[in-house]
Design a protein around this nucleic acid. Structure first.
Length: 569
DNA sequence: GCCGTTTTCGGCCCGACTGTTTTCAGTCG
Protein backbone atom coordinates (compact mmCIF):
# COMPACT_ATOMS: atom_id res chain seq x y z
CA UNK A 1 0.00 0.00 0.00
CA UNK A 2 1.38 3.37 -1.02
CA UNK A 3 1.82 6.40 1.24
CA UNK A 4 -0.86 8.44 -0.59
CA UNK A 5 -3.34 5.58 -0.17
CA UNK A 6 -2.71 5.42 3.58
CA UNK A 7 -2.92 9.20 3.95
CA UNK A 8 -6.14 9.29 1.92
CA UNK A 9 -7.66 6.60 4.16
CA UNK A 10 -6.88 8.68 7.28
CA UNK A 11 -8.28 11.83 5.70
CA UNK A 12 -11.40 9.96 4.69
CA UNK A 13 -11.78 8.74 8.26
CA UNK A 14 -11.47 12.32 9.50
CA UNK A 15 -14.14 13.51 7.04
CA UNK A 16 -16.49 10.71 8.05
CA UNK A 17 -15.99 11.48 11.73
CA UNK A 18 -16.81 15.12 11.03
CA UNK A 19 -20.02 14.12 9.27
CA UNK A 20 -21.03 11.95 12.17
CA UNK A 21 -20.36 14.66 14.73
CA UNK A 22 -17.38 13.08 16.45
CA UNK A 23 -15.22 14.96 18.96
CA UNK A 24 -13.43 17.74 17.10
CA UNK A 25 -10.08 16.93 18.68
CA UNK A 26 -10.33 13.34 17.55
CA UNK A 27 -10.95 14.59 14.02
CA UNK A 28 -7.94 16.85 14.30
CA UNK A 29 -5.87 13.90 15.45
CA UNK A 30 -6.67 11.93 12.29
CA UNK A 31 -6.16 14.81 9.88
CA UNK A 32 -3.08 15.93 11.81
CA UNK A 33 -1.60 12.43 11.57
CA UNK A 34 -2.32 12.42 7.83
CA UNK A 35 -0.69 15.85 7.49
CA UNK A 36 2.46 14.72 9.27
CA UNK A 37 2.66 11.41 7.40
CA UNK A 38 2.49 13.37 4.15
CA UNK A 39 5.77 14.98 5.15
CA UNK A 40 7.60 11.64 5.15
CA UNK A 41 9.29 11.92 1.80
CA UNK A 42 11.64 8.97 1.83
CA UNK A 43 9.94 6.36 3.98
CA UNK A 44 7.38 3.69 3.10
CA UNK A 45 4.69 3.94 5.77
CA UNK A 46 3.50 0.41 5.01
CA UNK A 47 6.85 -1.01 6.10
CA UNK A 48 6.92 0.68 9.52
CA UNK A 49 6.43 -1.08 12.87
CA UNK A 50 4.12 0.07 15.64
CA UNK A 51 7.13 1.58 17.41
CA UNK A 52 8.26 3.42 14.27
CA UNK A 53 4.76 4.78 13.76
CA UNK A 54 4.19 6.20 17.24
CA UNK A 55 7.59 7.87 17.00
CA UNK A 56 6.18 10.07 14.22
CA UNK A 57 4.91 13.44 15.42
CA UNK A 58 1.12 13.43 15.54
CA UNK A 59 0.80 9.66 15.35
CA UNK A 60 -0.15 8.00 18.63
CA UNK A 61 -1.18 4.53 19.69
CA UNK A 62 -4.66 4.89 18.20
CA UNK A 63 -3.75 5.97 14.70
CA UNK A 64 -0.70 3.67 14.62
CA UNK A 65 -3.05 0.76 15.27
CA UNK A 66 -5.37 1.88 12.50
CA UNK A 67 -2.49 2.14 10.04
CA UNK A 68 -1.31 -1.40 10.86
CA UNK A 69 -4.88 -2.65 10.46
CA UNK A 70 -5.13 -0.86 7.11
CA UNK A 71 -1.85 -2.29 5.81
CA UNK A 72 -2.65 -5.83 6.97
CA UNK A 73 -6.33 -6.07 6.06
CA UNK A 74 -6.67 -3.46 3.32
CA UNK A 75 -9.16 -1.33 5.25
CA UNK A 76 -10.05 0.01 8.69
CA UNK A 77 -13.11 -1.50 10.32
CA UNK A 78 -14.21 1.74 11.96
CA UNK A 79 -13.90 3.59 8.64
CA UNK A 80 -15.82 0.89 6.78
CA UNK A 81 -18.67 1.09 9.30
CA UNK A 82 -18.81 4.87 8.98
CA UNK A 83 -18.78 4.54 5.20
CA UNK A 84 -21.69 2.12 5.29
CA UNK A 85 -23.81 4.59 7.18
CA UNK A 86 -22.91 7.54 4.91
CA UNK A 87 -24.52 8.10 1.51
CA UNK A 88 -21.84 8.46 -1.20
CA UNK A 89 -23.54 11.65 -2.41
CA UNK A 90 -22.92 13.27 0.96
CA UNK A 91 -19.21 12.49 0.72
CA UNK A 92 -19.16 13.98 -2.78
CA UNK A 93 -20.39 17.25 -1.31
CA UNK A 94 -16.89 17.81 0.11
CA UNK A 95 -15.83 18.84 -3.40
CA UNK A 96 -18.20 21.80 -3.36
CA UNK A 97 -16.47 25.12 -2.61
CA UNK A 98 -17.99 27.26 0.08
CA UNK A 99 -19.50 24.56 2.24
CA UNK A 100 -17.60 22.44 4.72
CA UNK A 101 -18.31 19.54 7.06
CA UNK A 102 -20.70 21.45 9.33
CA UNK A 103 -22.94 22.64 6.54
CA UNK A 104 -22.79 19.28 4.75
CA UNK A 105 -23.81 17.48 7.94
CA UNK A 106 -26.71 19.90 8.33
CA UNK A 107 -27.84 19.39 4.73
CA UNK A 108 -27.81 15.66 5.32
CA UNK A 109 -29.28 15.39 8.81
CA UNK A 110 -31.66 18.36 8.90
CA UNK A 111 -32.75 18.59 5.26
CA UNK A 112 -32.37 14.91 4.38
CA UNK A 113 -30.34 15.68 1.24
CA UNK A 114 -28.26 12.66 0.29
CA UNK A 115 -27.25 13.24 -3.32
CA UNK A 116 -25.65 15.98 -5.42
CA UNK A 117 -28.72 15.98 -7.67
CA UNK A 118 -30.97 16.37 -4.64
CA UNK A 119 -28.84 19.24 -3.41
CA UNK A 120 -29.10 20.99 -6.75
CA UNK A 121 -32.90 20.68 -6.79
CA UNK A 122 -33.09 22.00 -3.23
CA UNK A 123 -30.94 24.98 -4.18
CA UNK A 124 -33.00 25.70 -7.27
CA UNK A 125 -36.30 25.70 -5.38
CA UNK A 126 -34.82 27.93 -2.71
CA UNK A 127 -35.18 25.59 0.24
CA UNK A 128 -31.45 25.51 1.03
CA UNK A 129 -31.43 29.27 1.63
CA UNK A 130 -33.99 28.78 4.38
CA UNK A 131 -31.84 26.37 6.39
CA UNK A 132 -30.21 27.67 9.54
CA UNK A 133 -26.83 29.18 8.79
CA UNK A 134 -27.46 29.20 5.05
CA UNK A 135 -28.81 32.04 2.95
CA UNK A 136 -29.22 33.23 -0.61
CA UNK A 137 -25.48 33.78 -0.91
CA UNK A 138 -24.44 30.31 0.15
CA UNK A 139 -27.17 28.73 -1.97
CA UNK A 140 -25.90 30.55 -5.05
CA UNK A 141 -22.31 29.59 -4.23
CA UNK A 142 -23.34 25.93 -4.14
CA UNK A 143 -25.05 26.24 -7.52
CA UNK A 144 -22.01 28.01 -9.00
CA UNK A 145 -19.69 25.36 -7.63
CA UNK A 146 -21.86 22.53 -8.97
CA UNK A 147 -21.91 24.16 -12.40
CA UNK A 148 -18.13 24.52 -12.31
CA UNK A 149 -17.63 20.89 -11.27
CA UNK A 150 -19.92 19.77 -14.10
CA UNK A 151 -17.97 21.83 -16.63
CA UNK A 152 -14.74 20.18 -15.51
CA UNK A 153 -16.09 16.64 -15.52
CA UNK A 154 -14.23 14.23 -17.75
CA UNK A 155 -11.08 16.38 -17.85
CA UNK A 156 -7.65 15.73 -16.45
CA UNK A 157 -4.80 18.01 -15.50
CA UNK A 158 -1.70 17.71 -17.65
CA UNK A 159 0.18 15.52 -15.18
CA UNK A 160 -2.71 13.09 -14.68
CA UNK A 161 -3.28 12.96 -18.42
CA UNK A 162 0.38 12.26 -19.02
CA UNK A 163 0.38 9.29 -16.67
CA UNK A 164 -2.78 7.78 -18.14
CA UNK A 165 -1.69 8.48 -21.70
CA UNK A 166 1.55 6.63 -21.11
CA UNK A 167 -0.32 3.60 -19.76
CA UNK A 168 -2.59 3.49 -22.80
CA UNK A 169 0.32 4.05 -25.17
CA UNK A 170 2.23 1.14 -23.59
CA UNK A 171 -0.75 -1.16 -24.06
CA UNK A 172 -1.24 -0.06 -27.66
CA UNK A 173 2.43 -0.52 -28.46
CA UNK A 174 2.23 -4.10 -27.28
CA UNK A 175 -0.42 -4.69 -29.91
CA UNK A 176 0.44 -2.46 -32.85
CA UNK A 177 3.58 -1.63 -34.77
CA UNK A 178 3.24 2.13 -34.91
CA UNK A 179 1.37 4.20 -32.35
CA UNK A 180 1.41 8.01 -32.27
CA UNK A 181 0.17 10.34 -29.56
CA UNK A 182 -1.97 13.08 -31.13
CA UNK A 183 -4.51 15.67 -30.06
CA UNK A 184 -4.28 17.68 -26.85
CA UNK A 185 -1.48 15.55 -25.40
CA UNK A 186 0.71 16.43 -28.36
CA UNK A 187 -0.19 20.10 -28.03
CA UNK A 188 0.49 19.88 -24.28
CA UNK A 189 -2.68 21.64 -23.22
CA UNK A 190 -3.00 22.47 -19.52
CA UNK A 191 -6.06 20.25 -19.15
CA UNK A 192 -7.06 17.35 -21.37
CA UNK A 193 -10.52 16.21 -22.46
CA UNK A 194 -9.59 13.51 -24.97
CA UNK A 195 -6.61 11.19 -25.14
CA UNK A 196 -6.09 10.64 -28.85
CA UNK A 197 -3.87 8.03 -30.47
CA UNK A 198 -3.20 7.15 -34.08
CA UNK A 199 -2.45 3.63 -35.24
CA UNK A 200 -0.93 2.98 -38.64
CA UNK A 201 -2.85 0.13 -40.21
CA UNK A 202 -4.24 -0.84 -43.59
CA UNK A 203 -7.34 -2.45 -42.11
CA UNK A 204 -9.43 -0.43 -39.60
CA UNK A 205 -11.57 -3.51 -39.03
CA UNK A 206 -8.57 -5.54 -37.93
CA UNK A 207 -7.58 -2.74 -35.55
CA UNK A 208 -11.07 -2.69 -34.03
CA UNK A 209 -10.87 -6.43 -33.49
CA UNK A 210 -7.60 -6.20 -31.60
CA UNK A 211 -8.87 -3.26 -29.52
CA UNK A 212 -11.95 -5.23 -28.54
CA UNK A 213 -9.72 -7.82 -26.89
CA UNK A 214 -7.68 -5.41 -24.80
CA UNK A 215 -9.03 -5.72 -21.27
CA UNK A 216 -8.23 -2.23 -19.99
CA UNK A 217 -10.11 -0.60 -22.87
CA UNK A 218 -13.89 -0.26 -22.83
CA UNK A 219 -15.77 0.88 -25.87
CA UNK A 220 -18.83 2.42 -24.34
CA UNK A 221 -19.10 5.44 -26.61
CA UNK A 222 -20.68 5.07 -30.05
CA UNK A 223 -18.29 5.85 -32.87
CA UNK A 224 -19.44 7.79 -35.89
CA UNK A 225 -16.96 6.23 -38.27
CA UNK A 226 -15.50 2.72 -38.44
CA UNK A 227 -11.89 3.83 -38.13
CA UNK A 228 -12.41 5.80 -34.94
CA UNK A 229 -12.62 3.90 -31.64
CA UNK A 230 -14.05 5.90 -28.75
CA UNK A 231 -14.22 4.68 -25.20
CA UNK A 232 -12.62 4.63 -21.79
CA UNK A 233 -9.37 3.19 -20.48
CA UNK A 234 -8.37 1.92 -17.04
CA UNK A 235 -11.80 2.90 -15.66
CA UNK A 236 -10.93 6.58 -15.92
CA UNK A 237 -13.61 9.16 -16.64
CA UNK A 238 -12.00 10.64 -19.74
CA UNK A 239 -12.62 10.01 -23.42
CA UNK A 240 -10.04 7.93 -25.25
CA UNK A 241 -9.96 8.06 -29.03
CA UNK A 242 -7.97 5.58 -31.10
CA UNK A 243 -7.89 6.26 -34.83
CA UNK A 244 -6.77 3.85 -37.55
CA UNK A 245 -4.97 5.65 -40.35
CA UNK A 246 -3.34 4.51 -43.53
CA UNK A 247 0.43 4.10 -43.00
CA UNK A 248 1.07 6.09 -46.18
CA UNK A 249 -0.67 9.17 -44.76
CA UNK A 250 0.16 8.94 -41.09
CA UNK A 251 2.22 12.17 -41.09
CA UNK A 252 -0.70 14.03 -42.68
CA UNK A 253 -3.17 12.55 -40.20
CA UNK A 254 -0.89 13.18 -37.25
CA UNK A 255 -0.65 16.82 -38.25
CA UNK A 256 -4.38 17.26 -38.79
CA UNK A 257 -5.42 15.37 -35.68
CA UNK A 258 -3.00 17.20 -33.41
CA UNK A 259 -3.67 20.78 -34.49
CA UNK A 260 -6.41 23.08 -33.26
CA UNK A 261 -8.94 24.29 -35.84
CA UNK A 262 -7.60 27.82 -35.72
CA UNK A 263 -4.19 26.58 -36.76
CA UNK A 264 -5.53 24.44 -39.60
CA UNK A 265 -7.49 27.44 -40.88
CA UNK A 266 -4.30 29.42 -41.47
CA UNK A 267 -4.30 30.62 -45.11
CA UNK A 268 -1.54 29.15 -47.27
CA UNK A 269 0.62 31.35 -49.48
CA UNK A 270 -1.00 30.25 -52.73
CA UNK A 271 -4.60 29.93 -51.59
CA UNK A 272 -6.42 27.37 -49.52
CA UNK A 273 -5.57 26.58 -45.93
CA UNK A 274 -3.08 24.47 -44.02
CA UNK A 275 -5.84 21.89 -43.62
CA UNK A 276 -6.41 21.72 -47.36
CA UNK A 277 -2.73 21.20 -48.04
CA UNK A 278 -2.37 18.65 -45.25
CA UNK A 279 -5.37 16.76 -46.61
CA UNK A 280 -3.90 16.50 -50.12
CA UNK A 281 -1.04 14.20 -51.13
CA UNK A 282 0.97 12.19 -48.62
CA UNK A 283 4.04 13.72 -46.99
CA UNK A 284 6.89 12.07 -45.11
CA UNK A 285 7.41 14.88 -42.59
CA UNK A 286 5.22 17.60 -41.12
CA UNK A 287 7.78 20.18 -42.22
CA UNK A 288 6.78 19.40 -45.82
CA UNK A 289 3.24 20.55 -45.12
CA UNK A 290 4.45 23.95 -43.95
CA UNK A 291 6.84 24.21 -46.89
CA UNK A 292 4.05 23.46 -49.34
CA UNK A 293 1.89 26.09 -47.66
CA UNK A 294 4.69 28.64 -47.82
CA UNK A 295 4.52 29.01 -44.03
CA UNK A 296 7.16 28.76 -41.31
CA UNK A 297 7.35 25.50 -39.34
CA UNK A 298 5.44 25.58 -36.06
CA UNK A 299 6.18 23.07 -33.25
CA UNK A 300 3.25 20.82 -32.24
CA UNK A 301 2.69 22.53 -28.86
CA UNK A 302 2.06 25.89 -30.51
CA UNK A 303 -0.50 24.74 -33.09
CA UNK A 304 -3.38 26.46 -31.35
CA UNK A 305 -4.39 29.23 -33.70
CA UNK A 306 -3.30 31.67 -31.04
CA UNK A 307 -0.86 34.02 -32.73
CA UNK A 308 1.81 31.41 -33.55
CA UNK A 309 2.35 32.71 -37.10
CA UNK A 310 2.77 36.27 -35.88
CA UNK A 311 5.27 34.90 -33.36
CA UNK A 312 7.08 33.08 -36.17
CA UNK A 313 7.69 36.35 -38.00
CA UNK A 314 10.23 37.28 -35.33
CA UNK A 315 11.33 33.92 -33.94
CA UNK A 316 12.22 30.37 -34.88
CA UNK A 317 11.63 27.18 -32.87
CA UNK A 318 15.33 27.18 -31.93
CA UNK A 319 14.68 30.33 -29.87
CA UNK A 320 12.25 28.53 -27.57
CA UNK A 321 13.27 27.80 -24.00
CA UNK A 322 14.11 24.21 -23.04
CA UNK A 323 14.73 22.49 -19.70
CA UNK A 324 18.47 22.56 -20.45
CA UNK A 325 18.40 26.36 -20.71
CA UNK A 326 17.25 26.71 -17.09
CA UNK A 327 20.12 27.61 -14.78
CA UNK A 328 18.34 27.98 -11.46
CA UNK A 329 15.05 27.40 -9.64
CA UNK A 330 13.50 30.37 -7.92
CA UNK A 331 10.22 29.66 -6.14
CA UNK A 332 10.63 26.88 -3.59
CA UNK A 333 9.62 26.02 -0.05
CA UNK A 334 11.48 24.27 2.75
CA UNK A 335 10.58 22.94 6.19
CA UNK A 336 10.93 26.51 7.45
CA UNK A 337 7.35 27.00 6.19
CA UNK A 338 5.23 24.24 4.60
CA UNK A 339 7.81 22.33 2.57
CA UNK A 340 8.64 18.69 3.12
CA UNK A 341 12.42 18.86 2.75
CA UNK A 342 14.99 20.84 4.73
CA UNK A 343 16.82 23.80 3.26
CA UNK A 344 19.96 21.69 2.93
CA UNK A 345 18.11 18.85 1.20
CA UNK A 346 16.44 21.25 -1.20
CA UNK A 347 19.79 22.86 -1.98
CA UNK A 348 21.90 19.75 -2.50
CA UNK A 349 19.20 18.11 -4.64
CA UNK A 350 18.99 21.22 -6.78
CA UNK A 351 22.77 21.34 -7.09
CA UNK A 352 22.94 17.64 -8.00
CA UNK A 353 20.41 18.19 -10.78
CA UNK A 354 23.01 20.48 -12.31
CA UNK A 355 21.52 23.88 -11.48
CA UNK A 356 23.71 26.83 -10.50
CA UNK A 357 21.45 28.30 -7.85
CA UNK A 358 18.40 27.70 -5.70
CA UNK A 359 16.08 30.52 -4.76
CA UNK A 360 14.31 29.64 -1.55
CA UNK A 361 11.01 31.47 -1.13
CA UNK A 362 9.16 30.23 1.93
CA UNK A 363 5.79 31.65 2.94
CA UNK A 364 5.66 34.97 4.75
CA UNK A 365 4.16 35.66 8.15
CA UNK A 366 0.54 36.24 7.08
CA UNK A 367 0.33 32.69 5.74
CA UNK A 368 -0.11 31.29 9.23
CA UNK A 369 -1.71 28.11 7.89
CA UNK A 370 1.51 27.40 5.98
CA UNK A 371 3.76 28.19 8.94
CA UNK A 372 4.80 31.49 7.41
CA UNK A 373 8.07 33.02 8.62
CA UNK A 374 8.08 35.70 11.30
CA UNK A 375 11.03 38.10 11.10
CA UNK A 376 13.08 36.13 13.67
CA UNK A 377 12.64 32.96 11.57
CA UNK A 378 13.72 34.92 8.53
CA UNK A 379 16.95 35.89 10.28
CA UNK A 380 17.49 32.29 11.35
CA UNK A 381 17.01 31.06 7.79
CA UNK A 382 19.37 33.66 6.42
CA UNK A 383 22.05 32.57 8.89
CA UNK A 384 21.63 28.97 7.75
CA UNK A 385 21.80 30.02 4.10
CA UNK A 386 25.06 31.90 4.80
CA UNK A 387 26.51 28.76 6.41
CA UNK A 388 25.46 26.50 3.55
CA UNK A 389 26.74 28.96 0.97
CA UNK A 390 30.09 29.09 2.75
CA UNK A 391 30.22 25.31 2.60
CA UNK A 392 29.31 25.22 -1.10
CA UNK A 393 32.00 27.82 -1.79
CA UNK A 394 34.59 25.72 0.05
CA UNK A 395 33.55 22.54 -1.76
CA UNK A 396 33.73 24.06 -5.22
CA UNK A 397 35.66 27.33 -5.20
CA UNK A 398 35.76 27.50 -9.01
CA UNK A 399 32.01 27.55 -9.54
CA UNK A 400 30.14 27.43 -6.24
CA UNK A 401 26.47 26.55 -6.06
CA UNK A 402 24.50 29.25 -4.26
CA UNK A 403 21.25 29.64 -2.36
CA UNK A 404 19.52 32.96 -2.95
CA UNK A 405 17.50 34.48 -0.11
CA UNK A 406 13.95 34.88 -1.28
CA UNK A 407 10.48 34.98 0.23
CA UNK A 408 6.99 34.38 -1.11
CA UNK A 409 5.43 37.44 0.42
CA UNK A 410 1.66 37.47 0.70
CA UNK A 411 -0.05 40.31 -1.09
CA UNK A 412 -2.49 41.64 1.50
CA UNK A 413 -6.01 42.78 0.66
CA UNK A 414 -4.85 46.33 -0.07
CA UNK A 415 -1.90 45.24 -2.21
CA UNK A 416 0.77 45.76 0.46
CA UNK A 417 3.45 43.11 1.08
CA UNK A 418 3.34 41.69 4.57
CA UNK A 419 6.72 42.69 6.00
CA UNK A 420 8.08 46.07 6.95
CA UNK A 421 10.58 47.51 4.47
CA UNK A 422 13.55 46.82 6.74
CA UNK A 423 12.72 43.09 6.64
CA UNK A 424 12.01 43.12 2.89
CA UNK A 425 15.39 44.74 2.37
CA UNK A 426 17.15 41.65 3.78
CA UNK A 427 16.03 39.41 0.90
CA UNK A 428 17.83 38.98 -2.40
CA UNK A 429 14.43 38.89 -4.12
CA UNK A 430 10.70 38.77 -3.38
CA UNK A 431 7.97 36.68 -5.02
CA UNK A 432 4.71 38.52 -4.33
CA UNK A 433 1.62 36.28 -4.38
CA UNK A 434 -2.05 36.38 -3.41
CA UNK A 435 -3.21 33.55 -1.15
CA UNK A 436 -6.29 34.84 0.60
CA UNK A 437 -9.39 36.87 -0.10
CA UNK A 438 -9.72 35.35 -3.57
CA UNK A 439 -13.23 36.53 -4.38
CA UNK A 440 -12.56 40.04 -5.59
CA UNK A 441 -14.02 41.92 -8.51
CA UNK A 442 -11.83 42.43 -11.58
CA UNK A 443 -11.26 46.07 -10.66
CA UNK A 444 -10.30 45.38 -7.04
CA UNK A 445 -8.10 42.36 -7.85
CA UNK A 446 -6.29 44.32 -10.57
CA UNK A 447 -5.80 47.33 -8.31
CA UNK A 448 -4.44 45.04 -5.59
CA UNK A 449 -1.90 43.46 -7.95
CA UNK A 450 -0.92 46.84 -9.43
CA UNK A 451 -0.08 48.08 -5.93
CA UNK A 452 2.05 44.98 -5.30
CA UNK A 453 3.84 45.35 -8.65
CA UNK A 454 4.62 48.99 -7.90
CA UNK A 455 6.28 48.00 -4.62
CA UNK A 456 10.03 48.46 -5.21
CA UNK A 457 10.78 45.23 -3.33
CA UNK A 458 8.69 43.04 -5.65
CA UNK A 459 10.90 41.02 -7.99
CA UNK A 460 8.44 38.42 -9.32
CA UNK A 461 4.65 38.40 -9.43
CA UNK A 462 3.68 34.87 -8.31
CA UNK A 463 0.74 32.86 -9.76
CA UNK A 464 -1.15 35.99 -10.88
CA UNK A 465 -4.74 34.65 -10.91
CA UNK A 466 -4.64 32.05 -8.13
CA UNK A 467 -6.39 29.49 -10.31
CA UNK A 468 -6.36 25.79 -9.45
CA UNK A 469 -7.08 23.90 -12.66
CA UNK A 470 -10.27 21.82 -12.58
CA UNK A 471 -10.80 22.94 -9.01
CA UNK A 472 -11.34 26.68 -8.95
CA UNK A 473 -11.22 29.55 -11.40
CA UNK A 474 -8.73 32.29 -10.78
CA UNK A 475 -10.00 35.71 -9.74
CA UNK A 476 -10.51 37.91 -12.78
CA UNK A 477 -7.72 40.35 -13.62
CA UNK A 478 -6.98 42.87 -16.35
CA UNK A 479 -4.01 41.02 -17.85
CA UNK A 480 -2.97 43.91 -20.07
CA UNK A 481 -2.86 46.39 -17.21
CA UNK A 482 -0.93 43.91 -15.04
CA UNK A 483 1.65 43.12 -17.75
CA UNK A 484 2.00 46.81 -18.65
CA UNK A 485 2.73 47.55 -14.99
CA UNK A 486 5.31 44.73 -14.84
CA UNK A 487 7.02 46.35 -17.82
CA UNK A 488 6.94 49.76 -16.17
CA UNK A 489 8.27 48.57 -12.79
CA UNK A 490 10.66 45.95 -14.11
CA UNK A 491 8.82 43.06 -12.44
CA UNK A 492 9.16 39.47 -13.64
CA UNK A 493 6.00 37.45 -14.35
CA UNK A 494 5.86 33.93 -12.96
CA UNK A 495 4.80 30.87 -14.89
CA UNK A 496 3.93 28.75 -11.90
CA UNK A 497 4.78 25.27 -13.15
CA UNK A 498 2.67 23.29 -10.71
CA UNK A 499 0.26 21.26 -12.87
CA UNK A 500 -2.51 22.54 -10.59
CA UNK A 501 -1.78 26.14 -11.53
CA UNK A 502 0.18 26.75 -14.76
CA UNK A 503 -0.50 30.36 -13.90
CA UNK A 504 0.17 32.87 -15.64
CA UNK A 505 -1.79 31.35 -18.49
CA UNK A 506 0.41 30.68 -21.55
CA UNK A 507 -1.98 32.72 -23.74
CA UNK A 508 -0.47 35.92 -22.35
CA UNK A 509 3.18 35.08 -22.96
CA UNK A 510 3.04 36.72 -26.38
CA UNK A 511 1.91 40.00 -24.84
CA UNK A 512 4.69 39.78 -22.24
CA UNK A 513 7.26 39.36 -25.01
CA UNK A 514 5.78 42.31 -26.84
CA UNK A 515 6.15 44.47 -23.73
CA UNK A 516 9.60 43.17 -22.80
CA UNK A 517 8.40 41.46 -19.60
CA UNK A 518 10.55 38.46 -18.68
CA UNK A 519 9.03 35.28 -17.31
CA UNK A 520 10.31 32.92 -14.64
CA UNK A 521 9.43 29.21 -14.80
CA UNK A 522 8.93 28.42 -11.12
CA UNK A 523 7.97 24.99 -9.76
CA UNK A 524 6.62 26.24 -6.40
CA UNK A 525 8.30 23.07 -5.10
CA UNK A 526 7.30 21.86 -1.65
CA UNK A 527 9.74 18.93 -1.85
CA UNK A 528 12.80 17.99 -3.89
CA UNK A 529 10.58 16.01 -6.26
CA UNK A 530 8.58 19.18 -6.86
CA UNK A 531 11.43 20.54 -9.01
CA UNK A 532 10.36 18.20 -11.78
CA UNK A 533 7.12 20.17 -12.17
CA UNK A 534 9.21 22.60 -14.20
CA UNK A 535 8.74 20.03 -16.95
CA UNK A 536 5.11 21.21 -17.18
CA UNK A 537 6.14 24.84 -16.90
CA UNK A 538 8.56 24.46 -19.80
CA UNK A 539 5.83 22.76 -21.85
CA UNK A 540 3.34 25.61 -21.47
CA UNK A 541 6.11 28.22 -21.79
CA UNK A 542 7.09 26.81 -25.20
CA UNK A 543 3.43 26.59 -26.09
CA UNK A 544 3.11 30.30 -25.48
CA UNK A 545 6.29 31.02 -27.44
CA UNK A 546 8.63 31.85 -24.54
CA UNK A 547 12.18 32.28 -25.73
CA UNK A 548 15.32 31.42 -23.80
CA UNK A 549 16.26 35.09 -23.99
CA UNK A 550 13.11 36.15 -22.12
CA UNK A 551 13.27 33.41 -19.47
CA UNK A 552 14.38 34.89 -16.17
CA UNK A 553 15.76 31.70 -14.64
CA UNK A 554 17.77 30.98 -17.76
CA UNK A 555 20.15 33.63 -16.40
CA UNK A 556 23.41 32.24 -15.05
CA UNK A 557 24.18 32.77 -11.37
CA UNK A 558 26.47 35.69 -12.19
CA UNK A 559 23.84 37.35 -14.37
CA UNK A 560 21.11 36.67 -11.83
CA UNK A 561 23.09 38.20 -8.97
CA UNK A 562 23.89 41.25 -11.05
CA UNK A 563 20.22 41.67 -12.00
CA UNK A 564 19.01 41.31 -8.41
CA UNK A 565 21.60 43.74 -7.09
CA UNK A 566 20.54 46.35 -9.65
CA UNK A 567 16.84 45.81 -9.00
CA UNK A 568 17.11 46.25 -5.23
CA UNK A 569 15.81 49.65 -4.08
C1' DG B 1 -6.88 11.01 19.64
C1' DC B 2 -2.22 13.24 20.76
C1' DC B 3 0.89 15.42 23.69
C1' DG B 4 3.55 16.34 27.66
C1' DT B 5 4.20 16.24 31.53
C1' DT B 6 2.39 18.57 37.16
C1' DT B 7 2.68 10.12 35.36
C1' DT B 8 -3.17 10.50 34.78
C1' DC B 9 -5.46 14.12 32.69
C1' DG B 10 -6.25 18.78 30.90
C1' DG B 11 -5.35 21.38 26.98
C1' DC B 12 -5.20 21.18 22.31
C1' DC B 13 -7.24 25.71 19.09
C1' DC B 14 -3.66 30.10 12.76
C1' DG B 15 -6.30 34.39 11.41
C1' DA B 16 -8.87 36.86 7.80
C1' DC B 17 -12.98 36.95 5.63
C1' DT B 18 -17.82 35.83 4.43
C1' DG B 19 -22.32 35.55 5.06
C1' DT B 20 -25.33 35.04 8.21
C1' DT B 21 -26.44 36.99 11.96
C1' DT B 22 -27.70 40.83 15.09
C1' DT B 23 -22.46 38.95 17.73
C1' DC B 24 -20.27 34.94 15.47
C1' DA B 25 -19.85 30.18 13.26
C1' DG B 26 -18.01 28.23 9.29
C1' DT B 27 -14.76 28.16 5.64
C1' DC B 28 -10.41 28.74 3.55
C1' DG B 29 -5.56 29.04 2.34
Amino acid sequence: MTNPEIIEALELTARLLELHGADSFKIRAYSGAAFNLDKLTNQQIAGLSFGDLVAIQGVGKGVAGKILELVEKGSIKETDELLESTPPGVLEMFRIKGIGPKKIALLWHEAGIETIAGLEVACENGSVAKLKGFGEGTQQKILDSLAFLRSQKGKLRMNQAETLSQLVQDVLEQNFERVEVAGEMRRKTETVETLRFLIAADSPVAVQKVLADIKVLHQNVKSSTPFVWRGKAFDQDILVEIISVSPAKIENELFIRSSAEGHLAQPAAEGGTLLKIASAEAVTTEEEIYTKAGLPYIIPEMREGHGEFAWAEKHTPADLVTWDDLKGILHNHSTYSDGNNSLEEMATFCRDLGFEYLGIADHSQTAAYANGLRPDKVRQQHAEIDQLNARFAAENPEKPFKILKGIESDILGDGMLDYADDVLATFDYVVASVHSNLTMSLEKATERLLTAIANPYTTILGHPTGRLLLSRDGYPIDYRAIIDACAQHNVIMEINASPWRLDMDWRWIGYCLEKGVKLSINPDAHSTQGYYDMHYGVAVARKGGLTKEMTFNALSLTEMERYLAEKKP
